[in-house]
Amino acid sequence: MRKCRDFQIEISSYYDGESGSDEKRDLFLHLAQCDDCQEFWENLHRLELRLTGSRSIAIPQRLTSRIASIPHSRTREEVSSFLNNVKWSIMEVWTRRLPIPLPLIAFVVLVSVGAWLFSLASKETSFVPTDEVIYYSTLPAVQVIGYYPPAALELKR
């Protein structure tokens, strides 16, 4: 037993001229007795009318000159220099969009990474191993958890 959703999928593909003849026959038989699917059909028709009415679009003037800038020669050197230019133009777009200049961002990132590395290094030098720590680190994890609870550990020591 086919559900309304299946028939609505068929309506969608019928609208695109992609339905087979068997599907069409079943679809029209169903449509004759289903208000929901008729409503979907009408809504789809209204929607498609609006979509077709909003196709036109203005092309930016500079697009043509950008296409004309594609190098005539297809040698590797010409192509790579063109691609570099494209990359630069993308960088320019980014710098135009960002309110803060890129060098400042790079400086802040470098300083923060440096500060973080310095704090790590200072932690390592101030670390003084104790007997307890060394003892724990030589034991496999399972043994520490299973057989050496703190109380037992105290006893053993």
Binding site: P60, L63, R66, I67, I70, R74, F82, V86, I90
Partner: peptide, 12 residues
């Protein structure tokens, strides 16, 4: 625009 340029670059 970037995408269209890139696409026509591939065409060429």
């Amino acid at each position: 625009e970037d995408t269209v340029q890139e696409t026509f670059f591939r065409v060429w």
